[in-house]
Nucleic acid binder design. Structure first.
Lengths: 131, 131
DNA sequence: CTTGACCCTCCAGTGACTGGAACCCCCATA
DNA sequence: TATGGGGGTTCCAGTCACTGGAGGGTCAAG
């Protein structure tokens, strides 16, 4: 299969797929004309990658997950460890963003948003403690 | 004031401050020996920048906020617009992360995490619809 | 034979820094 | 006077995960 069709099937831009080949995540064959020739297993891998990335795993996480995915003898604990670690990171990020949102929505609420020059947002950006 | 002291006062790495000069956010003077000489107003600006960045504003947002901050005649509505826009982006990000978290915590919960090779996390990464 | 859709490689840029090399400046001590 | 340490300087390269674009080759249809 050519890269365009694979891109549609996997829901990834062709550029991204080429990049994944560059960094060794997929290794498609080549047709005599130089075009990449993707086997069903390559497509399957790319779908897996797309989903892992959509869940916010880093490329290196994906590489590890992919290795585990392909290893018949892996322990599910290994996969779980990666996922749990990632989950903890997501939760930290959510907490950080919620703190930002709270501060910011206070600021927005207190600001008249009219044509007067005095603005409590700028005022508070001078005053409040650094996060 | 030299960059090291400014870094302490503003809570920013010296490297970051140099970078902010590079991209024109601050314009410290120079001592005859070539050292950057920060005026109190520069430090004040850097504190403002640190706080804005801590709230997740992009550098370009910061540049705009800084311009408004220095403009005596600005309308508070301009500032509010930037903040509201940013707030909306944060809320989108939180929602995305919460969706990830939910999917991922389901996966982690369903995984035995022992030494057996069958792992529902990898299974679901093959199956579930791409986000 | 041409058109247009596809494919290729390679290089540069993104955002917001961060690390490191190689060097200069200043002060205190032996 | 040397020297050591802790500042400071510039510039280049790397991070992450792509993305855009130039400049060109390939293929099927009309």
């Amino acid at each position: 299969m050519n890269i365009g069709d694979v891109a549609k099937q996997a829901g990834l831009p062709a550029k991204t797929i080429r990049y994944y080949e560059d960094i060794g995540l997929v290794k498609p064959l080549r047709d005599p004309n130089g075009y990449r020739a993707f086997r069903p297993s390559d497509v399957h891998k790319l779908v897996f990658l797309g989903r892992s990335r959509a869940l916010g795993f880093t490329i290196e996480d994906c590489r590890a997950l992919l290795a585990l995915w392909e290893d018949q003898d892996r322990a599910s604990a290994d996969v779980r460890a990666i996922a749990k670690d990632h989950l903890a990171q997501i939760e930290t990020k959510i907490a950080d963003l919620e703190a930002m949102r709270n501060t910011l929505s206070d600021l927005v609420r207190d600001c008249a948003g009219d044509s007067r020059p005095d603005c409590p947002i700028l005022q508070k950006l001078e005053d409040f403690p650094t996060g």
